[in-house]
Design a protein around this nucleic acid. Structure first.
Lengths: 199, 199
DNA sequence: ATGTCATGTTATCAGTGTAAACATGGTTTG
DNA sequence: CAAACCATGTTTACACTGATAACATGACAT
């Protein structure tokens, strides 16, 4: 017991030596940190500290810091997919649905900046080993499907690809520029840009 | 002389105690680092080490790590402006010039990934104190001017703003998606997307 | 009761940014 | 010319990080 802890040193000595569900607790605390600081500023040690557990306990559940971040990334993907579903449900036609998804994309970025960054920009240098589905697959699939349904049936494969890339680039770029302070993060402005968009 | 250096320990003992032009040397070395690693992986200590100087010597020329990064950011801006000039010079009309600048934007990002990141995405958490012109002003002004010349003279101010934002968002998003590995960094693909673009 | 094993802990290491105190040597002034 | 000044670099030290290795605990099965 070196007691060099800066905090109150609350050991979970309330009966059980084992935490119960540390893994979930770590993820939850990780998400909480992402609400208030950029991804590169989240620290394993602080997460552990706030959960009330030793610094190295994390390594029993995640081999790496990148692994923890990937987990957070995963729940981010689910949330984005959920946001897309909600956006689609409120639209009349396919075209409206697509634009609604575009708005939802940027809105999601503005409201969960760090999670968005974590998902989209490789904020974890070596996290993408082989697999790493990163859960962006689901929301991206939804976008792709909606756009395909929207285009003329005789459109070529590459034409679809280009169109998809244009749309994605635009919302992604808008989100990034706003997150990075190059453009004021105004949701009304987002609407204007998307409404005036092609398609 | 602790000699705990891992390197060959080359002190600049070739006559002058003072380095001569440390500031420039630090910037140059910093840019060299940015060529091979992402911005958040550049380390003051390693820069100092490679320049052959003590770790804290940096603080005689830059108050902060962020300050050094901002300096690098500055030369990045000059380079981008230069790339824009070159792109414009090879075009016949205004419309061609604008699209050429779009291509140049993405190309610049692909060829100087870390510098681009440093300039565009706030990779320095607290770097943007008050001033921080960040030198992106010049290239952005060039883009804006070209687009303005391109639009019908009776276009409203907000119409211009929206159009500018659309264009910028698209190239920026495309660049980011490619840098982050979400889209293959294919320059031919860039051309397709931009050519097929609105405008 | 006795092992086994997942889970958590302590000790330790290398690396980082940064501040404070000190050293050096060119430049300016008496 | 000597002495003070001051920009520049050095040493030392601190707090923080991610990560590894060795050890402790306690739940659960045989």
């Amino acid at each position: 017991m070196t007691s060099d802890d800066n905090t109150v040193n609350i050991k979970p000595r309330d009966g059980r030596y084992h935490h119960g569900d540390l893994r979930s607790a770590l993820i939850e605390e990780g998400l909480a940190q992402l609400d208030v600081k950029p991804p590169d500023a989240v620290s394993l040690r602080e997460i552990a500290r706030n959960v009330g557990v030793s610094a190295t306990a994390v390594y029993r559940h995640f081999p790496d810091k990148a692994a923890l971040l990937n987990a957070l990334c995963g729940v981010g993907g689910e949330r984005l997919a959920e946001a897309f579903r909600e956006a689609m449900s409120g639209a009349d036609d396919q075209r409206g649905a697509f634009k609604a998804m575009g708005r939802a994309y940027v809105k999601f970025a503005l409201r969960n900046p760090s999670v968005f960054r974590l998902m989209m920009t490789q904020s974890r240098p070596k996290g993408d080993r082989e697999k790493d589905p990163c859960a962006t697959d689901e929301p991206f699939g939804m976008l792709s499907d909606t756009l395909n349904a929207l285009m003329p049936p005789d459109a070529s494969k590459t034409a679809r690809k280009i169109k998809r890339l244009q749309a994605w680039s635009m919302v992604h770029g808008l989100a990034m520029l706003m997150l990075d302070g190059q453009v004021p993060p105004d949701e009304a402005l987002v609407d204007q840009v998307i409404v005036a968009s092609f398609l």
